[in-house]
Design a binder for these strands. Structure first.
Lengths: 194, 194
DNA sequence: CGTCTATTTGAATGTACTCAAAAGCGGTGG
DNA sequence: CCACCGCTTTTGAGTACATTCAAATAGACG
């Protein structure tokens, strides 16, 4: 059931059998249908989720009701609002499933217990967050310095498989442009290339 | 010399005297004059720096030679290119001092030694990176979803002291707009308010 | 005081947006 | 199996926000 998760962990820290078992013992399992929410803005994000199968999006809804996608999460990525999760304050993000999805869940109490019993997990999560931070910073630079076409090409190169899986208007939202603009950009590119 | 740093640490994890002493023993001290580099793109970032006094900027230079500021770092913030630091690969960022600056430095070997001898530090750095990640994600949403004026107002509210300390064109670069645009935005605001 | 850099202002341009409508696509039920 | 409905993508026209380029003014520093 959780092989991919254990593998993900063991690529970063070394666990013995007892530690693995303990880890698995605090994990819960969740299935989401398409469009079902994992968390909603205004409520506290009770779980961190590891994607076993499927795809989710994390997004904010602004005062005009427009959605802005922060993150897509596919297999082998963690998902959730870290800030809400750790502080217990209401989240500002919505997270829902773009496909039928299965998650491994861990709640805050379990995570803290885990840190206590197996301190190596501090390292595991530090490494994860560190990577996520590095990626986020790159996206900031991209967002503030590059025109839409270039941002699209970056996305296209870095996440070629994601682009197949996800409706175009969601990608536009992730890139910070309108669906109309993305459509035009793709048209221009296809006229220029072949 | 390092009181502020020790305080910063002890607000997050509890250290006994021996642990404190060990921590301090691996710290080096560095002074930078205004405009002096902490790291440059193309070289490996050898140190993480804790700002004891002063202010630095982290920025990327694009192919047209334009600078894009990722981060300002003032007293009690860590600075450096995490990715380069941990992987030993050349950095893509420049970091230099906007004011005369003093730093507490730790190199990678020392940091790993620290993790080994005082595993609590994994937690300390996890918490730091976690906060930085949360902040970076918010900036992503802001960058992709809000017009320049709104982004400026956010900056103005969140970092009122920084705005006093830093030349306006650097703030424009941080916001992802031209100095001319920021000047016009500020003019409009001052005409509208009073 | 003079030089260099930062900020402001103006005019023209461009990129991306809004609004509106048509075309395409996929799923559902008759 | 086809027809219809809803949603996504495309296309068009007009607009707005921010940029570029150029020049003037203001400020900082030696």
């Amino acid at each position: 059931m959780y092989e991919s998760l254990l593998q993900h962990v063991s690529r970063r820290i070394r666990l013995d059998k007892a530690e693995e078992d303990f880890f698995i013992s605090v994990i819960k399992h969740q299935k989401l249908r398409k469009k079902q929410f994992f968390t909603q803005a205004g409520e506290v994000c009770k779980y961190s989720g590891y994607v076993l199968k499927g795809c989710l999006r994390t997004y904010e809804v602004d005062k005009d009701g427009n959605e802005h996608i922060l993150q897509f999460s596919i297999e082998d990525w963690w998902v959730g609002d870290l800030y809400s999760f750790f502080t217990g304050t209401p989240s500002r993000y919505f997270v829902d499933a773009l496909e039928p999805t299965e998650l491994a869940l861990i709640d805050l109490a379990s995570q803290e217990l885990l840190y206590e019993k197996v301190p190596k997990f501090e390292r595991y999560f530090r490494l994860l967050v560190q990577n996520a931070f590095v990626a986020s910073q790159r996206r900031v630079v991209s967002a503030i310095s590059k025109p839409a076409e270039e941002r699209y090409l970056e996305f296209h190169k870095r996440y070629p498989t994601l682009e197949q899986r996800i409706p175009q208007h969601q990608i536009a939202s992730y890139l910070g442009i309108t669906p109309e603009s993305l459509s035009r950009i793709r048209k221009q590119l296809s006229n220029r290339k072949p």
